[in-house]
């Protein structure tokens, strides 16, 4: 079986293309470079290719992952070069490796890190950044952080998101603006959307949530080894 995983970046205007658009883009790019993807059996065969974790529309990412299977074995280095030549600006392949593990990566990913930047000026809503940063420690020291979560059925359940937060810190930047980095649960079992965390944080700090001034970047996705100790990036 020729299974591979590739890591790519999604940047610039490409942040506005959806999950399905991106899948189609990769499918066509493989076809352009003459790599045939393995297809599922059955009435309506589709290529064996999937993203490890979907990315919200509008986010950029430095660490997206795509798993796929090809009909013929491939030289990963050459495939990477050819793919990059066939992809539009804003989508770039950083690395490709063969994937031996049986279990799909989407079921093994455990954690993702994000950087959040706040725009001020033109598009941004001003808020008291100092107050926000000062609130972080207190926010994290809470035993539990409860929120109402709407289920698919429409019912609300109470959820504690504190265990899903591995890290949260501020980075002051040279130009004086603030940004936050966070590591949170990701994956099919347990997933924390960074905006859920931010909403809770702003409310804890007593600030209104500046939805339109956020720029969110997913930096990396990690697997949890069996012993649960250290997290390792997929690639």
């Amino acid at each position: 079986m020729n299974r591979y995983v590739l890591k790519f970046r999604k940047e610039g205007y490409m942040r506005y293309i959806s999950h399905l658009d991106l899948l189609r883009l990769f499918k066509r790019s493989f076809s352009r470079i003459g790599v045939r993807l393995r297809h599922s059996e059955g009435f309506n065969p589709h290529p064996k290719m999937s993203f490890v974790q979907p990315l919200s529309l509008g986010y950029i990412s430095k660490g997206e992952y795509l798993e796929f299977e090809t009909v013929h074995p491939q030289d990963v280095a050459s495939m990477q070069v050819r793919l990059n030549a066939a992809l539009p600006e804003g989508i770039s392949v950083v690395a490709i490796r063969t994937e031996a593990g049986k279990k799909a990566l989407s079921a093994r990913v455990a954690c993702a890190s994000y950087t959040v930047q706040f725009l001020d000026g033109d598009g941004g809503e001003a808020f008291d950044a100092g107050r926000l940063c000062a609130a972080i420690d207190g926010f994290l020291q809470q035993k539990e952080i409860l929120r109402e979560k709407k289920q698919k059925t429409g019912k609300f359940v109470t959820q504690d998101i504190r265990p899903m937060i591995y890290a949260l810190r501020e980075n002051s930047q040279e130009n004086g603006s603030v940004s936050l980095t966070m590591e949170v649960s990701a994956g099919s079992n347990c997933n924390l959307n960074p905006e859920v965390l931010l909403t809770e944080l702003f409310s804890y700090a007593g600030l209104s949530y500046p939805r339109e001034s956020l720029r969110i970047c997913r930096d990396e996705m990690y697997l949890q080894p069996a012993d649960g100790s250290v997290k390792i990036p997929i690639i």
């Binding site: 610039g12 205007y13 490409m14 506005y16 293309i17 959806s18 658009d21 529309l57 509008g58 066939a86 992809l87 539009p88 600006e89 804003g90 725009l119 033109d122 598009g123 339109e212």
Partner: peptide, 26 residues
């Protein structure tokens, strides 16, 4: 006015923002 900046501030409010970004292959 910087078109790029203004665009980034409003594209997430509209349906199918990729209609307005260009950048397609070729």
């Amino acid at each position: 006015m910087n078109v790029n900046e203004t665009l980034n501030s409003l594209l997430l409010r509209v349906e199918k923002p990729a209609r307005y970004i260009g950048g397609e292959l070729y």
